[in-house]
Every structure is written in structure tokens, then in C-alpha cells.
Simulated assay, not measured.
Amino acid sequence: MPGLCGVLVAVFFLNLSYFGCTEAQTPPPSIPCAFKSNTSCDDCLQNVTCLWCEQTAQCIDYPVRNIFPPRSVCPLNDARWGVCWVNFQVLIITMSVLAGALFIAVLICCCCCCKCERIGNKKEDAKVERENRARKSRQKARRTEMQVRHDEIRQKYGVAKDNPYSRINE
């Protein structure tokens, strides 16, 4: 997935440069937005609390009770906030596409991680199974070796049994 991650990082930085994240603007606190109406978009947007409506050339206070300015204040394709060259309609579409792409990328990464983990677990399970079989075969070989030694000792002392199921009488 290095290709996908690289593309996502490139898109992120392109959007940062596209939306003008170069320098912070300090708003002049004393001038209300309404006094900058019928001037220019750049003059209006020097204050971050102002919204420029391209259609009416009005500089108004941003309606903070709403996430997006209502159509009665200014249509979305004419509303400008932050920078003059991006309207709200383009901003909404771009941000929703980026959010969707980010969401899909996170889902793909999660699925890949889960898949890799499952493959790793299968490999570990097979390794454990092989080790268990090897351990059982070694244990069986030791058991037969021990049985042979015990039988040799029994024959040496004359207590060998012909029938393995009969009791040894003293």
C-alpha cells in the first residue's frame, strides 16, 4: 500500500497549498464587517468573522449559528469566506470528496492489516502444529526406547514376562 499512502499524502499537501494555508491573517478587531460592504472581497475577508457575498457585494458577519450560510443571506456559490477564490459550493464538494477518499483509504488499510494478521495467524498455527507433531514423535521414540531398556533389565534379572498382560509374581 505504499503507492496509495503516497497519493493520499500528495493530495493532502496539494489541498493545503490550493486553499492558501501559507500565512495566518490577523483580523483588525475594531472594524465591523458591514462597514466593508461595497469595497472588495480582499478587504472584507481580512477579518475572519466576515463573509463576502459576491452577488450583492456585501460584507456581512458570518452566521455562526449555522454551519453554512443560509440561502437567504447569500447563495453558496456566491459566498466567500477565508479566501476570495473559493466559494462554499466548491469547498463543500472538495471536502466531502476528500473525506470520502480518506474514509475509504482507512477502510482499505484496516482490511489489509486484518488480512495480513489472519495470514500470519495461519502460518503460526501451522508452525505450532508441526512443532506439536515433532514433539509427539520424539516422545513416542523416547517411550519405545525406555520400554526396550526396561525389557532388557527384566530379562537380565529374570523377571521377563511372556504375556504383557499377566502380573509378575514374586
Rank of each mutant, 00 (worst) to 15 (best):
M1I: 09
M1W: 06
G3D: 11
G3N: 11
G3V: 07
G6V: 01
L8P: 00
L8F: 10
L8K: 03
V9G: 02
V9R: 04
V11C: 05
F12I: 01
F13P: 02
F13E: 03
L14P: 01
L16V: 12
S17T: 13
T22E: 04
E23P: 00
E23I: 09
T26G: 02
P27M: 04
P28C: 00
P29M: 14
P29H: 10
S30I: 02
S30P: 02
P32I: 03
A34G: 04
S37V: 00
N38M: 04
T39S: 07
D43Q: 11
L45W: 05
N47H: 11
N47W: 00
T49L: 08
T49R: 15
L51T: 00
E54R: 11
Q55D: 13
Q55N: 13
T56S: 15
T56I: 01
A57F: 08
A57D: 07
Q58M: 14
C59Y: 03
I60Q: 12
D61I: 00
P70A: 10
P70V: 07
R71H: 05
S72Q: 14
V73W: 02
V73C: 06
L76N: 05
L76P: 02
L76F: 02
N77V: 11
N77Y: 10
G82A: 03
V83W: 05
W85H: 13
V86D: 03
Q89Y: 11
V90S: 13
L91I: 06
L91N: 09
I92G: 07
I93D: 01
T94L: 12
V97K: 12
A99T: 06
G100N: 03
G100R: 04
G100V: 06
F103H: 12
V106D: 09
I108M: 15
C109L: 14
C109N: 13
C111L: 15
C112M: 09
C112E: 12
C113L: 15
K115Y: 07
N121L: 13
N121F: 08
K123W: 02
K123P: 02
D125F: 06
K127W: 00
V128F: 11
R130Q: 13
E131F: 08
N132E: 10
R133D: 11
K136V: 04
S137W: 10
S137H: 09
R138S: 08
R138M: 13
K140A: 10
A141R: 10
A141T: 05
A141H: 04
R142P: 05
M146A: 14
D151C: 13
R154K: 05
R154L: 13
K156D: 09
G158A: 06
G158D: 07
V159I: 07
V159C: 08
A160F: 14
N163H: 14
I168G: 10
E170M: 12
